[in-house]
Simulated scan of single mutants.
Amino acid sequence: MADDGIDCRYCHTSVEVSQRAGLPPTHTCMTCHSQLWTGAGVLEPVRKSLLTGKPIHWQRVAQLPDYVQFDHSIHIDRGVACVECHGRIDRMPLTWRAKPFQMQFCLNCHRDPAPHLRPPELVTRMEPLGWSEERRRAYGERVMRAHRIDPKTLDNCEICHR
């Protein structure tokens, strides 16, 4: 099962400009689901929301504790792909938490961001780029230099805990 190639930003419209990715309003869901999986039971809350005008109460799967600050827009701008934290969403018929979202998970990336970076125009691409490990690292190191990203400063507690 796949997502028919829908870009993450179609549903998560504020991911490039806000701390939060945003959750889609019902009419966004129904743009596709008025034609795909129209009778699926799992979509009953979406159909009900459209009928009643009451917003969908989303069950969050990527919840961070209140004391953790995370800004989607800066990660997207620097080239951290959605798949790095959220896994292969395109292969999930129902979204689940694919990565641990524990402090060590974030610190591992902050201490060595280079292999996790890709060109910003490819951040919503789910499949691997097909780049060798050396090419990924070289690209990431160029981005880090260009943006003056110093891993020694990225594991400062105040980066995420404010």
Rank of each mutant, 00 (worst) to 15 (best):
H72M: 15
H72S: 15
P93A: 00
E84A: 15
I89G: 07
R78K: 11
Y67K: 02
E84K: 12
G87S: 08
L94S: 10
W96E: 12
H75E: 10
P65T: 10
W96I: 13
G79T: 04
M92C: 03
V80D: 01
F70W: 13
Q69P: 01
M92N: 06
D66H: 06
H86L: 05
F70H: 10
P65E: 07
H86S: 08
P65G: 09
P65A: 10
D90Y: 00
R78T: 11
G79Y: 00
D71S: 13
C82A: 12
Y67I: 07
E84I: 13
H75N: 13
A81H: 04
S73I: 07
D66T: 11
H86Q: 08
C85T: 01
D66S: 11
I74C: 03
Y67T: 11
D66N: 09
R78E: 05
A81W: 00
W96A: 11
V83P: 02
I89M: 13
D71I: 09
I74E: 03
D71W: 07
F70R: 05
D77P: 01
T95H: 12
D71K: 10
G87I: 01
Q69D: 08
I74H: 03
D66R: 04
R91F: 00
L94C: 06
W96T: 12
T95W: 09
G87C: 06
M92Q: 15
H86V: 03
D66M: 06
R78L: 12
A81I: 04
S73W: 14
D66Q: 10
C82E: 13
I74V: 14
F70E: 05
R78Y: 08
S73M: 07
R78V: 10
T95I: 15
I74N: 03
Q69W: 08
A81R: 14
R78M: 09
D66F: 08
P93Q: 03
R88C: 00
Q69F: 10
R91I: 00
D66G: 10
T95V: 15
Y67H: 09
I76L: 11
S73C: 13
C82L: 10
S73D: 12
H72L: 07
P93V: 00
A81Q: 09
G79I: 02
V80Q: 04
I76K: 09
L94E: 14
S73N: 13
M92P: 08
D71H: 14
H86D: 10
S73R: 12
V68A: 05
D90I: 00
I89E: 13
D77Y: 15
F70I: 08
G87E: 01
V80S: 06
D71T: 12
S73H: 15
I76C: 08
H75Q: 13
C85H: 02
H75K: 15
V80F: 15
F70D: 04
W96S: 10
H75A: 14
T95S: 14
E84V: 15
H75T: 11
V83R: 14
H86M: 07
R91T: 07
I74L: 06
V83D: 05
T95K: 11
R78D: 03
P93G: 02
V80K: 06
V68G: 00
H86C: 05
C85E: 00
D77E: 14
C85R: 02
W96L: 11
L94R: 14
P93R: 04
F70V: 12
I76G: 03
C82W: 12
P65F: 02
V83N: 06
R88E: 07
A81P: 04
A81V: 04
Q69I: 09
T95F: 13
V80M: 12
G79A: 04
H75C: 13
M92W: 02
